[in-house]
Design a protein around this nucleic acid. Structure first.
Lengths: 206, 206
DNA sequence: ATTCTATTGACCATAGTGGTCGAAAGGTGT
DNA sequence: ACACCTTTCGACCACTATGGTCAATAGAAT
């Protein structure tokens, strides 16, 4: 592991990307170390010289991805915005940027979330809980509840708005999948997104 | 194939269930015919006696599942209900019943939808298109648009409501996963679900 | 020249794949 | 009793791929 970290950064990157992509596509069990080294352009031996086993590599990727998401996504959202929908809009922008620049990391994390029986060591479990905590705070902390219509259950309203927005984003992602994220002009989609947000505001806010 | 169809119905069922479960869990490539025969309690030879290959078995499952979903779900929804949310509520009830009684089929179809590169023969493609058409009609056909606030884009409003409801259902499924569907008392969840629907109505309807 | 590190890919035992096939068992009619 | 056909089994096949090792190098540093 120290071997790996004292490596040329570009080579590190190439190996990480290759491994993230492989695990994201195949899941832990079916992922192949042979394919990883081929994609990364290194000899088979090196992978086990840097990391001692497939599992160790995987754990490193998990830790690395969690850190990256916090640094490149969670920490960049402005928590002083107290309007729920505006907060969500802002978070979406930051997230899209991070996602475009780190496709494999986000896909990898998606896979980690879905994988059924997959026990992580204590420290990664802790990192995971922290990630969940931050993700929650990102959306719900410091929100001004007085913006909503009095008679509604605020928590339920939060959820409905969240599901609606996530639904839009998932559908968009599905529609755009296969295309190079970096090559897409997102402006018309942002436009459309704002129209959806507008409807939500007019429906749920006072 | 005629061999299979002229088989004791219970045995047929056992084989179908075993195969559906295996494919749903592992996807086409990673699914193992060895595990299937073990689960189904038959000898290896029989599987290839009934169906000639893994692919033929898979195609049969696809066709079987599509038919079942139409018969046990789509066809049971009352299309004369013109209130969008009421229609959705009704469809949810029917779907939950079908899903409880055919867990493996629904999981299998979910897997088929997700599988990336997976080309089906012409006839199954056609069946699939038909399924999509019916699924769309199920939600959108004959809906009374005058119930919604005039100033909103109705199609966008439909989508928001759909995403919100699907979001709730997915979250609920995730929360309940692992439990025996048949053993769950759904009443409190229906209660909660209705409260969500109520908020939606009060927010989006005139 | 020597020592230490980085790098390779052929190689290993192992496990699992989809599919086959000879043999046995069961059933039916004569 | 026999013959004939259908059903059932699981050992077996050739093959592919796995995670991991290691002897042999090449390069750097001293």
């Amino acid at each position: 592991m120290e071997k790996f970290k004292s490596l040329d950064v570009l080579k590190q990157q190439a190996i990480l990307e290759a491994a993230l992509e492989e695990f994201a596509e195949y899941g832990y069990d079916t992922a192949s170390t042979n394919r990883i080294v081929k994609k990364a352009g290194i000899g088979k031996g090196m992978l086990f010289y840097y990391f001692n086993s497939k599992k160790e590599l995987f754990h490193h990727l998990v830790s690395y991805s969690f850190d990256l998401v916090v640094k490149e996504y969670f920490n960049l959202v402005d928590l002083s915005e107290r309007d729920f929908i505006e907060r969500f809009k802002q978070a979406s922008k930051v997230k899209l940027k991070a996602q475009t620049e780190n496709r494999h990391v986000f896909n990898f994390i998606g896979m980690v979330m879905l994988e059924k029986e997959l026990e992580l060591p204590e420290d990664l479990q802790k990192q995971f809980k922290e990630l969940q905590r931050l993700g929650y705070a990102l959306l719900y902390e410091g929100i001004d509840k007085s913006l909503f219509k009095q008679e509604m259950d605020v928590e339920k309203t939060f959820n409905l708005i969240r599901w609606a927005i996530e639904g839009y984003q998932n559908e968009l992602l599905r529609k755009l999948e296969g295309q190079k994220m970096a090559a897409i002009d997102f402006d018309p989609y942002w436009q459309e997104f704002y129209e959806y947000l507008d409807i939500l505001k007019r429906s749920f806010y006072k």
